[in-house]
Amino acid sequence: MTAIVEMENVTFAYGETVAVRDVSLTIEAGDFLGLVGPNGSGKTTLLHLMLGLHSPDDGRIELFGQPVEAFDRGERIGYVSQKATSRGGTMPVTVREAVTMGRFARAGYSRLTDDDRAIVDDALETVGITDLAERRINELSGGQRQRAYIARALASEADLLALDEPTVGVDAESRDAFYKLLDSLNDDGITIVLIEHDIGVVTDRADRIACINTELFHHGDTESFVESDALEQAYGTTGQVVHHHH
């Protein structure tokens, strides 16, 4: 198997505050990794480090076998951030335009081709929002909007989907449908890294878990995580564990 992400003894601090300490982990092709931990535990920072949005103070990170700072195949990563997007709520952009952005990294300065447009159509269809393509993205419900961002990632033909709490503010029904979609994408061979505050959802869906609270408390398959006491350790006695049964 090939490693998609490889982190070795990675440490990162915001000024004096250490957010991630001495974390080593490997994500293999085809993994569905759930990244869990209490609020402020450094989950998002860890994800940003993997994607090269922050540079580590110490340690080494490789993305698709390349040092992350030299990585230039941006189209291989589909990224859905915590607030989905900073401007999606106000900016006049159609769903199709947003999904088409997934092709921009590949196209560079050249014009988009018919192939690009066909791939965008396919991505819209895969996530089931073809009928919404010409709507403004801020007219969509939370669940529909998240599907649009996934479609953008699919349009870039990404090998790695990085999702930071993608279902915040999404109703339960859409959320289930959304995770079913992730499952089927993972079955198609796309590697997924998911940050999710709802531990129940993660343990139901992910096949591997990384549990972090500044340091890595567990990294391995989901069964061993459920049986271990990593969760109690990471969350401590004061931490609140969100558990959700299906």
């Binding site: 949005l53 951030s81 997007t85």
Partner: peptide, 11 residues
């Protein structure tokens, strides 16, 4: 539209 996603896409 999405500065962070644009950074991830290596723009």
């Amino acid at each position: 539209f999405d500065e962070q996603a644009a950074r991830v896409a290596r723009l």
